[in-house]
Nucleic acid binder design. Structure first.
Lengths: 207, 207
DNA sequence: TACGGATTTGAACAGGTGTTCAATTCAGAG
DNA sequence: CTCTGAATTGAACACCTGTTCAAATCCGTA
């Protein structure tokens, strides 16, 4: 017993987070034990506590990192342009960011209820912040008469649910490439907020 | 100890399922113990085994019941009509069925990974069956030229994800009534499959 | 080569897990 | 009122849970 040869926190730390993300995505937070995570990394359970104060913080850190990465990537990929261009950029960004991160997305959505109240609030706030990006585009598009939208909040949630749902079935070796999926979903979104010849709508203000 | 006064399986049985559904929706299957469920019902853990052979079967029964109810209700609400009418009927049915069942929906989506492989296959099959209802409408609408759809499988998944997502935020005392939500989502769906003046699409056949 | 800090072990803690079952009590039919 | 079967208890089983910590070992520096 004692320190193992070749052990370094810069190596073990990321491996702990990767193992935790993988196992939690697969079995769920509550179903995964610290001993399982440790075994995956090849250490004893006690050593995990060099990398997280407790199990709850481990989950929170994974989710917070994911949300921060998301917001930073969105920030970096912001573009100028009319609302339609911005909407397209948002849709394509969302898909490109989420598809390679299916496990993190899974965990960030499914394990919300396993967060302590304080941690839940923080994650929820980050999520709201991201949704605000899309809602801002929709509002602006509606203001300029480019979009036809009955309720920008509902439309925001509908679009995000639709896009994020891709993570539940996409497989890298599946029938469709990421580019095809991107194109199809952009078409769906574009049409759903487009000017509708069939039946004009009236706008409802958010309360 | 011994049998309690007023105890009947027709009463306790449903109470067990209700308690289990509520607790699992709130905390997750793995995080809920048989003793917690029993306490919720007001009995000892051992008595639960009069109503389920084991914890896994309890989860599976909840999910299977939900899916069977869904398919039966859909069957009963089928209507004749052109694809657009049938699509509207499906969208409105989906929302009306799911909104009062948020907990069951939650459990049926989140706890899939806690099902034993055999049970998972059965639930997945029921889900596929339900998705087939929508895909059938979309295919028929495309065949008749009523809808403009690039990929009926993708469009099916997109629409269902969008609609089911409502369960994640809808509250009975919220800003919007179920009827308003129904109207808004129907508009979104109708436009997304409608003939698109802005940019014609080409159809891709499923493989 | 010697030393201090980083890293891990392995045992221990108090409590919780799903499940079983003999004993017990109640409900309802005859 | 009796008797059978349904319903429940409460204890027990073997095992797993998150977390702590002294002891042991290794790494990098001096």
């Amino acid at each position: 017993m004692g320190r193992k040869t070749g052990s370094h926190s810069e190596i073990t730390g990321p491996r702990v987070r990767e193992a935790a993300l993988r196992l939690i995505a697969q079995h769920g937070f509550a179903a995964v034990s610290m001993r399982q995570i440790a075994a995956e990394v090849g250490i004893q359970a006690g050593a995990l506590y060099n990398y997280t104060p407790d199990k709850q913080s481990l989950l929170f850190d994974l989710m917070q990192s994911h949300m921060h990465e998301l917001l930073e990537a969105r920030e970096a990929s912001r573009t100028r342009g009319d609302p339609l261009e911005q909407l397209e950029a948002f849709v394509r960004f969302h898909i490109r960011f989420h598809l390679p991160r299916q496990r993190a997305v899974f965990v960030s959505y499914m394990e919300l209820r396993n967060l302590a109240p304080d941690n839940f609030s923080k994650i929820e706030q980050l999520r709201t912040c991201y949704e605000g990006e899309l809602q801002g585009i929709l509002d602006e598009g509606h203001r300029l008469g480019d979009f036809e939208i009955s309720d920008s909040k509902i439309t925001t949630l509908a679009i995000i649910a639709m896009l994020t749902g891709i993570c539940n079935w996409y497989r890298e070796d599946g029938r469709l490439s990421a580019a095809e999926i991107e194109a199809d979903y952009w078409t769906l979104v574009r049409k759903s907020v487009g000017i509708d010849a069939a039946e004009p709508m009236r706008h409802r203000r958010a309360v």
